Amino acid sequence: MDKDKRSNFHLLLLFFVIAVFIWSAIKPAGYKIWTMEVLPAFGLLIIVITTYKKFRLTSLSYFIIALLSILTFIGGHFTYSEVPLFNWIKENFDLKRNNYDRFGHFLKGLFAIVIREMYIRKSPIKKGFWLIFVILSTSLCISTLYEIIEWLSTKIGRDGKATKEFLGMQGDIWDSQWDMSLTFVGSILALIFLSKVHSRLLKI
């Protein structure tokens, strides 16, 4: 893919992300919970857009960022425990909970590829065991930090309903452990299946 085609692809991704963001902001389940949910993805997008010319990522990394942002905006619009498709799955397969949150945390493992790109391009760590170890550690650290932020929101938030929806436990006391574990597994699978493609894009 030449430079012009890559740029057009990146613009197309940005268009879809902005379109879903605007849709997400129209009559969400609640604007407070919507803000809490979409803020991390919105902040990441601002960083990506402002650094585009100085530090351009691979198209794979941009696709992953776009996909995860869209998933976050969908979850913010409905709240993660009330996404309609996963409510349908819950009802038709007799599940105990809406698993959109679990699905989202699993796919967040894809961010390991973005982390991989940062380390390969900006650190002296070479390909091999230690690169994989540091990538997985960083991915798990980010996931853990997010769970801590969710927990802190319940301690300092005044809107009990919004903070409960943001926490999204759905009655499972092990929800945080599930979320972190799924992100960790997703990160491992992302490295197994996408590292070769990513290396070709990085030309290493």
Rank of each mutant, 00 (worst) to 15 (best):
N99E: 03
F86L: 07
L131W: 02
S81H: 06
L68A: 04
W88V: 14
N92T: 08
W130I: 10
L95Q: 04
E82Y: 01
L152P: 04
I115N: 02
K96I: 00
I70A: 13
F78H: 12
D159N: 15
F166G: 03
H105F: 07
W88A: 11
C141A: 14
G76Y: 03
S143Q: 01
F129A: 07
A162W: 11
M118P: 00
L71G: 10
S139I: 03
L71P: 04
K155I: 13
S153A: 12
I120P: 00
F73Y: 08
S123M: 10
T79S: 14
F63V: 06
I89W: 09
L67R: 08
F93L: 12
K127I: 05
L107M: 13
E91W: 12
K96E: 02
G75C: 08
F86E: 03
P124H: 10
I115E: 08
N87P: 11
I65S: 01
T138V: 08
G75T: 08
S139E: 06
E165Q: 14
W130T: 02
L107Q: 06
K96G: 06
K127L: 10
Y62A: 04
F93A: 08
I74K: 06
E147D: 15
S139K: 00
R116P: 00
N98Q: 11
V83H: 00
F93W: 10
G75A: 09
G109C: 11
N99C: 09
H77G: 08
T72C: 13
L71Y: 03
K161S: 15
D159Q: 12
H105T: 01
A162R: 05
T163K: 14
T163V: 15
T144P: 01
K164E: 14
Y119G: 02
W88F: 13
I64W: 04
K126I: 05
E117A: 11
G104R: 02
G75N: 06
